[in-house]
């Protein structure tokens, strides 16, 4: 499956903005991943060839960085932070709750193909610990007890055709508050949930 014209245009734009073709490799792989959520070998190869580079270094980058996926992923990639600040706030319980709900296979994918559960390291949102990344967005603080509701919201959004980002259109402003799902990266719309004993 060839890259979409918009992706090709984006890669060309990236290439033109950078001094060397090789520098465009990582941003271009990310642009290509934007299409399907992951990077099949043929896509890696296509990106490399567009830039006049060998596919091997592209494959190398695709496996080095945690945000690039060389295996299929679900509609939502959930990256739960396990680093110390989140750990201290109960991230292990959140992970367990997610596992119990999603029953992920060995690759972390739920049977319905909607979710991929990844365990990640610090995402830089410690005030909202425990938190996770949902595709482009940070969500927190999470509560193991309300994980089923959180997932239910995500499922409804996927059914409603609201694509990968939680905030379908950032320019349109923050998404409405839908219960326990909070968007910590929309800084100015965070509900005050922090002070708690």
């Amino acid at each position: 499956m060839a890259l979409a014209p918009e992706t090709i245009a984006e890669i060309e734009r990236i290439r033109a903005a950078l001094p060397e073709a090789r520098s465009a490799l990582l941003p271009s792989l990310k642009a290509a991943q934007g299409e399907r959520g992951w990077l099949p070998q043929e896509t890696i190869k296509e990106v490399a060839e567009m830039l006049g580079l060998d596919p091997n270094p592209a494959y190398m980058l695709a496996t080095f960085y945690t945000m690039l996926h060389t295996e299929p992923v679900g509609h939502y990639v959930l990256e739960v932070c396990r680093s110390l600040p989140c750990y201290l706030r109960g991230s292990d319980g959140v992970t367990e709750a997610l596992r119990a709900e999603l029953q992920p296979d060995e690759h972390g994918n739920s049977a319905d193909g909607l979710f991929s559960l990844k365990i990640g390291e610090c995402l830089g949102d410690c005030p909202h610990a425990p938190m996770m990344r949902v595709n482009d967005d940070f969500v927190g603080p999470l509560d193991a007890a309300t994980i089923p509701e959180t997932l239910a919201i995500l499922r409804r959004r996927a059914e409603g055709g609201r694509v990968r980002g939680l905030m379908a259109d950032p320019a349109a402003g923050p998404a409405p508050n839908e219960g326990p799902l909070t968007f910590s990266n929309a800084i100015q719309s965070l509900p005050l949930t922090r002070v708690r004993d």
């Binding site: 070998q41 890696i44 190869k45 580079l53 060998d54 596919p55 091997n56 270094p57 592209a58 494959y59 190398m60 496996t63 080095f64």
Partner: peptide, 22 residues
């Protein structure tokens, strides 16, 4: 000056490799 060989993954999982199918 070729890149017929590379290293994939990272850290203690690093391994010498070539693109699949090649």
């Amino acid at each position: 000056g070729d890149e017929a060989l590379t290293v994939i993954d990272r850290g203690s999982h690093s391994e010498i490799a070539v693109t699949e199918g090649r």
